[in-house]
Amino acid sequence: PSSTARPASLTATCPRIASGWMWAFTRRGSGPGRSITGAIVDCSVDGSGFEFAGHTLGTIAKWLCDLYGVTVEFPDGDTTKIDETRAEPGETVFKFLNRLAQGKGMLLSADGDGKLIIRRSNPAGKPVAAIVEGESPYLGGSSSYDGTKRFSRYKVFLQQDGDPGIVGTVEDLGVPIYRPKVEVGTDADGKDAETAAAWRRTMALAEAVGLSVTISDWRTPGGQLWNKGDPITLYAPSLMVYRESPFMVAGVKLRIDETEGRVADLRLVLPQTYTTDMPEAYPWD
């Protein structure tokens, strides 16, 4: 080949699944491919730490992604302005943008044309599917729980005129023993220390709970491709989901299985991951 990568697209009947680059080839013409947005996942923000002040997430995202030829769309509208923020040295473009998006309740995903889609999370949205263990399209799943990721108290100090003078504290009543977590906030936290602490509490819950299911179709029952941010309900006793419970899709992997054909691996999180609230009841209670 005359170059290290070649343009490619993947289509499953309709619509297009992904657009990007083939990075490796064999004599049979097969090989791993990446979406156009793969570049912002791999590559760091170029510089000792770009600083942004008074810009929206959309402005920052478009400025950074334009360097890689990635188009950015906001189907639900842009965010409010971020007072001050910066990318840390070595931080990838995606990690930086995702960090800002989480603080604004937004989700990052890629569409079939290789565009970066930044949409507002909708934890209370109508489920696109009700998945039940033992019934189609459920094929299997796995779950795990790591209580060391959670703490009983989260305290965040924010800078004020150079001094960490703003303090925010929240409790996690689901942790029955004394386990404090104290951090100094970052620029992305803004000026609301209590909200910053609440975000750390919900993200810790998301890290503690690992849940994934495999579905026997690339599409939802409504005919749309599975997408990050899709709300669903799940009842799967073997995964410790003992009641029909709401979840949101946090990651999607579409693949072709030798025996099952087209399957989708869905990584699930509790809806509260995208809010500062905590669940009133847990699926495993």
Rank of each mutant, 00 (worst) to 15 (best):
residue 2 S to L: 11
residue 2 S to P: 13
residue 2 S to T: 12
residue 3 S to H: 06
residue 4 T to P: 13
residue 4 T to N: 14
residue 5 A to D: 04
residue 8 A to R: 07
residue 9 S to W: 05
residue 9 S to H: 06
residue 10 L to V: 12
residue 13 T to D: 11
residue 20 G to L: 05
residue 20 G to V: 04
residue 22 M to Q: 15
residue 29 G to M: 09
residue 30 S to M: 09
residue 34 R to D: 09
residue 35 S to K: 00
residue 36 I to D: 04
residue 37 T to S: 02
residue 37 T to L: 05
residue 40 I to Q: 00
residue 41 V to H: 15
residue 47 G to D: 02
residue 47 G to P: 04
residue 51 E to R: 13
residue 55 H to C: 06
residue 60 I to V: 04
residue 62 K to H: 08
residue 62 K to N: 10
residue 64 L to S: 02
residue 65 C to P: 10
residue 66 D to Y: 12
residue 70 V to A: 11
residue 70 V to H: 01
residue 71 T to D: 13
residue 72 V to M: 01
residue 77 G to C: 10
residue 79 T to C: 00
residue 79 T to H: 01
residue 79 T to V: 08
residue 86 R to H: 04
residue 90 G to Q: 07
residue 91 E to S: 11
residue 91 E to N: 02
residue 95 K to L: 12
residue 95 K to C: 03
residue 96 F to M: 00
residue 100 L to G: 00
residue 102 Q to A: 14
residue 107 L to C: 05
residue 107 L to E: 03
residue 107 L to N: 01
residue 111 D to A: 04
residue 113 D to C: 03
residue 114 G to W: 08
residue 123 P to N: 03
residue 128 V to D: 01
residue 134 G to T: 00
residue 134 G to A: 00
residue 137 P to W: 00
residue 137 P to M: 02
residue 137 P to N: 05
residue 139 L to M: 12
residue 140 G to A: 05
residue 149 K to D: 07
residue 155 K to T: 15
residue 157 F to C: 01
residue 157 F to L: 10
residue 158 L to E: 01
residue 158 L to I: 03
residue 159 Q to T: 13
residue 161 D to M: 08
residue 161 D to K: 15
residue 171 E to H: 15
residue 174 G to W: 07
residue 178 Y to C: 11
residue 179 R to I: 12
residue 180 P to D: 10
residue 182 V to H: 08
residue 183 E to R: 15
residue 184 V to E: 13
residue 186 T to W: 08
residue 187 D to V: 00
residue 190 G to K: 09
residue 191 K to T: 14
residue 193 A to L: 06
residue 200 R to M: 00
residue 203 M to W: 08
residue 203 M to C: 09
residue 204 A to E: 02
residue 206 A to P: 01
residue 207 E to H: 11
residue 209 V to K: 02
residue 210 G to Q: 12
residue 211 L to A: 07
residue 213 V to N: 01
residue 213 V to I: 12
residue 214 T to H: 15
residue 218 W to Y: 09
residue 219 R to N: 14
residue 229 G to Y: 05
residue 229 G to L: 00
residue 232 I to F: 12
residue 232 I to D: 08
residue 234 L to C: 14
residue 234 L to V: 05
residue 235 Y to T: 03
residue 235 Y to N: 10
residue 236 A to L: 06
residue 236 A to H: 06
residue 236 A to Y: 09
residue 238 S to C: 04
residue 242 Y to H: 12
residue 243 R to K: 15
residue 255 R to P: 13
residue 256 I to Y: 09
residue 256 I to R: 14
residue 258 E to L: 03
residue 260 E to S: 15
residue 264 A to D: 07
residue 264 A to R: 05
residue 264 A to H: 03
residue 265 D to L: 12
residue 266 L to W: 03
residue 266 L to Q: 10
residue 270 L to C: 10
residue 277 D to E: 09
residue 280 E to A: 07
residue 282 Y to W: 15
residue 282 Y to P: 04
residue 282 Y to I: 01
residue 283 P to T: 01
residue 284 W to K: 03
residue 285 D to A: 12
residue 285 D to Q: 11
residue 285 D to V: 06
